[in-house]
């Protein structure tokens, strides 16, 4: 019953549509099934000083037609799924390219549709993994001639270190006399 609630902003010829889509089945194009709760947002706190990221793209089933979005695999197994997406059926019949770190690739299977509700399929560029030193941003984007590029900017920061943080505080409002709270 677990699922990930995906809230894409889908760029299409008539504007931007914003369906909320439940993803309850996540797999790679090689058939590896992954918990949908390994999907995460594009702002990330890492407990490590460095981390590895792998470019990818995902296709998501949707009632109005399958979506495609750039993705990243993080080295702890989580997948970054940004909220910007295209609807595959709206795209011209031209190759979709994924760009990452000054390299780009045409996506061979990008036009294949997936139609089963709740499904998301990820295609990885496993040999393109790179190391990132924190804090950092990682940019990846999908392009197609005549279409607005779809960017994914992953913001990675390091987790706070305990000695550098302040104690959590509690505030009660009135500090000099009893006053009525209006909350």
């Amino acid at each position: 019953m677990s699922f990930f609630l995906y809230k894409p902003h889908v760029y299409g010829p008539a504007g931007v549509t914003t369906p909320d889509i439940i993803i309850d089945y996540l797999r790679t194009d090689e058939g590896k099934v992954i918990s949908p709760q390994m999907l995460t947002s594009d702002t990330f706190l890492s407990a490590q000083g460095t981390m590895h990221v792998t470019p990818a793209y995902g296709k998501i089933a949707a009632g109005g037609g399958a979506l495609i979005a750039p993705m990243l695999l993080l080295d702890d197994g989580r997948y970054v799924l940004p909220r910007l997406a295209w609807r595959i059926g709206h795209l011209p019949d031209q190759p979709i390219c994924l760009s990452f770190r000054h390299a780009s690739w045409a996506l061979p299977g990008a036009k294949e549709r997936i139609t089963v509700r709740g499904h998301c399929e990820i295609s990885l560029f496993a040999k393109k993994t790179c190391e990132v030193t924190l804090p950092s941003t990682v940019d990846i984007f999908l392009t197609q001639d005549g279409e607005k590029p779809l960017p994914l900017t992953l913001h990675i920061d390091a987790c706070s270190k305990a000695p550098a943080t302040q104690n959590a505080r509690y505030s009660v409002g009135p500090t000099r006399k009893e006053v009525k709270h209006y909350i």
Binding site: M1, P19, A61, A62
Partner: peptide, 19 residues
């Protein structure tokens, strides 16, 4: 405890995008 029923409603729709 809860179960998700197999409603299989449309996942997208016109006007409000999300059913």
């Amino acid at each position: 405890s809860w179960v998700r029923a197999p409603l299989d409603a449309a996942t997208e729709c016109w006007f409000i995008n999300t059913t």
